[in-house]
Design a protein around this nucleic acid. Sequence first.
DNA 1: ACCCCGATCGTA
DNA 2: ACGATCGGGGTT
Length: 168
Amino acid sequence: MNRLDRAFFNRPTLKVAKELLGKVLVFGEHQGIITETEAYIGLDDPANHAAKGKTKRNEIMFGEAGFAYVYLIYGMYNCLNFVTEKKDFPAAVLIRGLKVISNPPIIIDGPGKLCRFLGITREQNNTDIITSENFYVADSKNTVQFEAMPRIGISSGTDRLWRFIAKP
DNA sequence: ACCCCGATCGTA
DNA sequence: ACGATCGGGGTT
C-alpha cells in the first residue's frame, strides 16, 4: 500500500479532513478505513486547542504537517489527530471513526474508543507518520460520499460544519 | 499552589 | 442524565 505523503497533509485542513475519509489508517497490526473526521483550524477557531496560542501541549500543531498530535482528554482517554497545513499555522484533523479491516473487524465510533482499541497513547504524540515504520495512512481508491455536521463535544465554534462522516 | 474544566464514554 | 478521572492552563 502506498502511504500518503507530507504534501497530502500540507494543505487546507478541510480538504484533508474530507479526503482522509476512505483512506486506510495503519498502526502496527491494525488497519482500518477512516469513517469520521473533524477539522480544527487556526487561531480563529475557538474550539481549537491552539486558539489561544502555543503551549507545551499543543506545540505540535504549530509544527510541520504529517505528525501525530495525541492528547489526553477527560483524564482517561486519548485522541488522535494529524497535523495539517504549513509550519506555524496550528491546525489538525481529529480521527473519530474507523471501520477496522484487520482482526477483529469492528466498527469504531468515537476518538477515545479508537485510541483505546488501536493502543494509541501519548507515546505516539509527535510521531512522524510520513516516515514511521508502522504508523501511517495508506492511500485508497475508495470514493466516499460524506455529510458535514457540527463538531461534537465542544461549547464554541459549533456554527462550523467541520465534522465529516462517510456514508455507509 | 490552587482551581476549573475538557475535541469522551459507559451506565442509569 | 451523570459520574469517572487527571493534566493543562490560567489565576493567585
